[in-house]
Computed example of a mutant assay.
Amino acid sequence: MASPIFSEDYRIMIDILVATRRRAGVSQRSLAARLGKSQSHINMIEQRQRRVELREFYLMCKSLGADPVAVFQEITEALEQQRQAA
């Protein structure tokens, strides 16, 4: 079975998290510091080499000043668009 971090759905989620970080004007290093993690931890997430758990998703969004529910809604809408296009 293929790892879920290599799926198209997961790519969409990570792309939206990266876009959220960039919209907030926050570097990987700064986000990592806010989370008490290393910059390489954030980079591994953004390169889809590390999974994001729900709690970490929540903390990432809050650290970026983003509403986790709104970010999740953005992900949900993108996934629905992908399914309709397929």
Rank of each mutant, 00 (worst) to 15 (best):
D9S: 15
A19V: 07
Y10T: 03
I5R: 15
A32K: 11
G65T: 11
Q84S: 14
T76N: 04
I45M: 08
T20K: 02
V26P: 03
S3R: 11
A66Q: 11
S30K: 14
A66Y: 02
S63D: 00
I5E: 12
A70W: 02
S27H: 05
R29W: 07
L54W: 00
L54D: 09
R55G: 09
I42K: 00
E53A: 12
R11F: 07
A2M: 09
R29H: 11
G65L: 04
E74Y: 00
K62W: 08
Q47V: 07
D15E: 12
I5L: 08
L59E: 09
E77H: 08
R51E: 13
I42D: 03
I45C: 06
K62S: 06
A86H: 15
R50W: 01
A33K: 15
V71G: 14
D9I: 00
V71K: 15
R23V: 03
I16P: 04
R48S: 12
S7E: 08
M60H: 07
M60D: 04
G25H: 05
V52R: 03
K37T: 07
M44K: 13
R29V: 10
A32M: 06
L17A: 05
L64N: 13
L59G: 02
C61K: 10
S38I: 00
R55L: 15
F57K: 11
S7M: 05
R83F: 13
F72Q: 01
